[in-house]
């Protein structure tokens, strides 16, 4: 093998690799064509399927996706929740922040004027199993439902008294605080632009 000149023929040596590369590339392109739309659909449904839960009465197919500029100057993608008969019911805002262990991703449902929290859902978290990961349960998230947004949510360990008090999970105060912080920051960040959009909407007469 080594007696021949070292660069015998690049093609002669590598033709199989090149052929396989083309073959596999074609195969993967085919897989992408076949499955790509389905995967995109799955990703979209992750948020869209939850919108009726976050803003009661909203119809998924009527949802409008918008990009606004938040108070921190960065773009935020929000979803306008619309009912089946074209009533603007509220907004769904995806947000994320640092939890105890890693990042927590949530979506927050608010009403059209951003004055009441209509629902919170935790999409992704890596908190401690059995303790912090109970932030995904309805038991905890229901404590945030119906809270007014005029004051930021405060986590208390017992006896919630004020309207913006949220009872923390036993043994998972930091995770509870993390979720409330994420909700507070998201609302503070998007309040001004979304309220502006909502009032502009109400001002322009609907063209049917």
């Amino acid at each position: 093998m080594e007696e021949k000149a070292p660069k015998t023929s690049f093609i002669g040596q590598a033709w199989l690799v090149i052929l396989l590369a083309l073959l596999y590339g074609g195969g993967l392109a085919g897989v992408q064509l076949a499955l790509g739309p389905r995967i995109a659909e799955n990703k979209r449904n992750e948020t869209y399927a939850l919108i009726p839960e976050m803003v009661p009465g909203a119809a998924t197919e009527k949802t409008v996706e918008l990009e606004i500029v938040g108070a921190d100057g960065k773009n935020v993608r929000v979803y306008k929740a619309v009912s089946a008969d074209d009533q603007h019911l509220g907004w769904v805002i995806p947000a994320s922040g640092g939890g105890f262990a890693d990042r927590i991703e949530c979506i927050i449902g608010v009403d059209a004027t951003l004055s009441v929290i209509t629902g919170v859902y935790v999409l992704d978290q890596k908190e401690t199993p059995g303790l912090g990961d109970l932030i995904t349960t309805a038991d905890f998230l229901d404590r945030l439902k119906g809270k007014a947004t005029d004051l930021p949510l405060t986590v208390v360990k017992r006896n919630p008294q004020a309207a913006n008090d949220v009872l923390s999970l036993t043994g998972a105060t930091i995770s509870s605080v993390a979720v409330c912080d994420i909700v507070n920051n998201a609302i503070a960040n998007t309040q001004a632009p979304l309220r502006q959009l909502a009032s502009a909407d109400a001002a322009t007469p609907k063209q049917d």
Binding site: Y24, L28, V31, L35, R38, I39, N42, K43, E46
Partner: peptide
């Protein structure tokens, strides 16, 4: 190549 195929199939059917 086969791992990519497996990954895509999983993402499509068992998201």
């Amino acid at each position: 190549t086969f791992v990519t195929i497996a990954d895509k199939v999983l993402a499509a059917y068992l998201y």
